[in-house]
């Protein structure tokens, strides 16, 4: 089971998965909300590294721009706009947390069992194309042009909707 050869990809995979999992666990355990957002940014950057390992360079950049940049900053703005007491009070619902923990571990057990049992066919992995961004652009503007347009409409609607929702009512 452990007779793996230590290729560069495997070492990089170990490093990135350590970053991802420790960031996620720290996010659960930190008490200050801003620290949680910072450790989540570490998780996002680790996932961007995983995307580079999987020959998805364009997605890695999108991940850094959208998640590590925009989403983290948006969350920090959300924390800033809603004054809270800096640190989260300790949850008093012990039984609830315990049950949720058991449920999450059980789900992981099921997923673990399923992944170990499945026979993945040893096909040839996708060869790294010379220009990942070029290929994605070609595909996006030929086969997937309708979803692309729909997603632009969705983004516009979400943009206007969030402005309307968060706008302060004048007569209050």
């Amino acid at each position: 089971m452990f007779n793996i050869e230590w290729t560069g990809e495997y070492i990089a995979f170990i490093v990135f998965s350590a970053v991802i999992i420790s960031g996620a666990v720290f996010m659960i355990n930190f008490t200050k909300v801003v620290h949680m957002v910072v450790s989540l940014a570490a998780v996002f950057i680790g996932i961007a590294g995983m995307f580079v390992l999987l020959n998805a360079e364009f997605l890695a950049f999108v991940q850094v721009l959208v998640y590590a940049g925009a989403v983290s900053i948006l969350m920090i703005f959300g924390i800033m706009m809603t004054k809270h007491k800096e640190s989260e009070t300790e949850s008093k619902r012990g039984l609830h947390s315990l049950l949720v923990g058991i449920g999450a571990v059980a789900l992981f057990g099921i997923l673990f069992y399923a992944i170990r049992q499945t026979e993945f066919p040893q096909e040839q992995p996708l060869q790294a194309v010379e220009d990942n961004t070029l290929e994605i652009g070609k595909l996006l503007f030929t086969g997937y042009v309708v979803p692309f347009e729909i997603i632009s409409v969705l983004l516009t609607v979400a943009f206007i909707g969030s402005i309307v929702l968060a706008k302060k009512e004048a007569n209050e």
Partner: peptide
């Protein structure tokens, strides 16, 4: 399967955080 395992761990941690 290694990538799937990391994703499964991440998903379960996220589920726990979202519910607790």
């Amino acid at each position: 399967s290694s990538y799937l395992m990391v994703a499964a761990i991440l998903f379960c941690i996220g589920l726990y955080g979202a519910l607790v």
